[in-house]
């Protein structure tokens, strides 16, 4: 808990690297999510007929159905991808940084 340890962590170049990498990754994914979601909302608000196209000629199912479900499950996959990267890449560096600071 001591400030010394925090100071040592902060001065470790690996910390800066971890923070930059992870932040870039997280912010990138967040922007992707925001663009998709608000893009979808704006299409709903301004051009709902775009989503009213039938999936094939004569079908009652419109493209809105797979797009909507696709948004949910694509977001879920992104969450999974974030966790995969965090477990594989970030946790190890994180543990190293803390270990080095405790020495």
């Amino acid at each position: 808990m001591s400030t010394d340890v925090y100071e040592r962590i902060r001065s470790n170049p690996k910390f800066a690297e971890l923070v930059t990498k992870r932040t870039r990754f997280a912010v990138g994914l967040s922007i992707l999510v925001l663009v998709i979601f608000y893009g979808f909302i704006l299409v709903v608000a301004f051009a709902p007929t775009l989503l009213a196209k039938p999936l094939w000629t004569g079908a009652a199912t419109t493209i809105a159905v797979p797009i909507g479900a696709g948004i949910i499950w694509f977001f879920w996959l992104l969450i999974g991808y974030y966790i995969y990267r965090a477990n594989r890449d970030f946790d190890g560096i994180n543990a190293d940084i803390v270990k080095e600071a405790m020495k």
Partner: peptide, 24 residues
């Protein structure tokens, strides 16, 4: 109809943001 599903999508879309920016 579909409008109800949009609510579902909106209620879902917060979760990736909570994951990426807040949970940890």
């Amino acid at each position: 109809g579909y409008d109800g599903f949009i609510y579902g999508i909106a209620f879902f879309a917060c979760w990736p943001i909570i994951m990426f920016l807040m949970a940890e």
